[in-house]
Amino acid sequence: MALVRFAGQLRKLVNGNVELNFTASNISECIKNLDGQFPGIKESLCDNNGELLESINVYVNGDNVRYLNGLTTTLKEEDEVDIMSAFAAG
């Protein structure tokens, strides 16, 4: 299972959880699974077309998925996913 962390105020989206474990084959599925457990979270991370909001950065093992394969970036069991406000990276 991939480990998912939310940084800063985004933790409110997952009821303050620091770390969560999800089985997912890629980032898109990870967000879908998150939305199943925390309804509405997808709307906070993605636009109406299902693309990541510009204000959200998602990292896999430290790298922004925008430089990988976006939402189709594959996940392995030991991967770490970090989600934070893109403003903080500026």
């Binding site: 990292y59 430290g62 790298d63 990276a89």
Partner: peptide, 16 residues
Amino acid sequence: IKGKRWAPEMEVIQKW
């Protein structure tokens, strides 16, 4: 410290 989030400086510059 947990949570690996790497921001390339080029990305930062583009944001500004």
